[in-house]
């Protein structure tokens, strides 16, 4: 088995978030499309909608965006929009983060080179941990 993990680095920022999946389901039921378009990227919507319980996966991605915003200490606002952070999956189904240009600028500003996330959820809660690292 060949595994390749990132070669260490300096931890620049750390953030986590926990959310009740029911909250996200409630908003999806009430404001579905408008909310989805404002908060989640196209690739996130395609992925979540392909699964049996989309709201749980949306909740995990909501938590990921919040966790990343906490890493940067900016919150969601001028420097980081909801859709600036997009979670997708690598070849081993590990969650990876794609940043838009705005968030990329922010990453360089804080002196980091990579963002790593880890997601998890149960039937009732979803959580995410995010870290900003400087490699090389």
């Amino acid at each position: 088995m060949s595994l390749s993990l990132p070669p260490g680095g300096i931890l620049v920022g750390l953030g986590c978030d926990l959310i009740e999946v029911e909250r996200i389901r409630g908003v999806l039921d009430k404001h579905g499309d408008r909310f989805l378009k404002r908060v989640f990227t196209e690739e996130e919507q395609v992925y979540c909608n392909s699964l049996k319980y989309p709201h749980k996966h949306y909740a995990a991605r909501w938590a990921a965006k919040e966790a990343v915003s906490k890493c940067f200490t900016t919150g969601i606002g001028e420097h980081l929009h909801w859709t600036s952070v997009s979670v997708y999956h690598g070849s081993r189904k590990e969650p990876l983060v794609r940043l838009d240009e705005r968030a990329g600028d922010l990453l360089r500003t804080v002196g980091a080179t990579h963002v790593w996330v880890s997601l998890s959820h149960t039937d009732t809660h979803a959580m995410a941990v995010a870290a900003l690292l400087k490699h090389g």
Partner: peptide, 16 residues
């Protein structure tokens, strides 16, 4: 105010 960019969505999630 750009700081308020995420407010409407946060509010919808936490309004209950």
């Amino acid at each position: 105010n750009p700081d308020l960019e995420g407010l409407p969505d946060f509010f919808e999630v936490w309004a209950s």
